[in-house]
């Protein structure tokens, strides 16, 4: 236990693990890709609905807004690990297994939907009411207002929201990994924690740091390019 780990040894150990690191990265990527896609496809429209049913908006409806808002808050109040465990039956039903990145993507998606819905709602609130009203006065249909006005005017904010979501769920995916999902976080725990291979832990954390920096940089860059305000 007292042997000093030399840098050369650490690097050699890591290079032996290269195939596993590669696989773990692919698993993390898969979990994120599924979770984010579902968040965009389901959470996006839900966020638009939350926004449009607010008082004073196009489809102001206290009941719908209340129910959807309540559901969103409900799912968001679950600590992620508890949500995962409670969704095990649903996961088994949908995927046929509770192990592996695809199974882990089920609770990830479930948590990402309300998260993204709130982000979308907040982002849309920044659009001046008058701009939407101008489109109404020009005879735009609700669908045209959503696609051309809301999404067009909020596009930079939506990219920033997606950036936040991606980074949050990169860390959620590490939690999902521990309960059999695989991925970078799982690798760090298995080798770095259970087998005391600190160099693996350090390397995995460094890898995550680099990924987060890249995502944030890309998100900021794209948002700035799209923002003409």
């Amino acid at each position: 236990m007292d042997e000093q780990l030399t840098l050369a040894q650490a690097l050699a150990n890591l290079s032996d693990l290269a195939p596993e690191i590669w696989q773990a990265s692919a698993e993390t990527g898969l979990m994120l890709a599924i979770g984010l896609s579902v968040a965009i496809v389901v959470g996006g429209p839900l966020g638009i609905l939350l926004y449009l049913t607010q008082p004073g908006q196009l489809f102001a409806n206290r009941a719908v807004n209340g129910v959807v808002g309540w559901f969103v808050n409900l799912v968001r109040s679950f600590p992620f690990i508890i949500l995962m465990v409670s969704l095990v039956p649903l996961t088994r039903l949908l995927v046929g297994s509770t192990i592996g990145p695809i199974a882990a993507a089920v609770p990830l998606s479930f948590a990402a939907i309300p998260y993204f819905a709130r982000l979308v709602e907040q982002t849309l609130r920044e659009i001046p009411r008058g701009v939407i009203e101008a489109a109404e006065a020009m005879g735009a249909s609700p669908a045209q207002i959503i696609w051309k006005v809301l999404l067009g005017e909020a596009r930079a904010g939506l990219i920033s929201s997606l950036t936040i979501l991606t980074i949050s769920f990169l860390s959620y995916s590490a939690v999902a990994g521990v309960v059999g999902g695989g991925g970078i976080g799982d690798l760090a725990i298995r080798y770095g924690y259970y087998r005391f291979q600190t160099e693996v832990m350090v390397a995995m954390v460094l890898l995550l740091v680099v990924i987060v920096q890249i995502i944030q940089f890309a998100g900021n860059h794209l948002a700035a390019r799209l923002d003409k305000r």
């Binding site: 001046p128 701009v131 009203e133 101008a134 067009g152 930079a156 923002d227």
Partner: peptide, 11 residues
């Protein structure tokens, strides 16, 4: 319709 605050689409 023309508005006091113009209400143009910024993007």
């Amino acid at each position: 319709m023309v508005f006091q605050q113009f209400n143009l689409m910024a993007n």
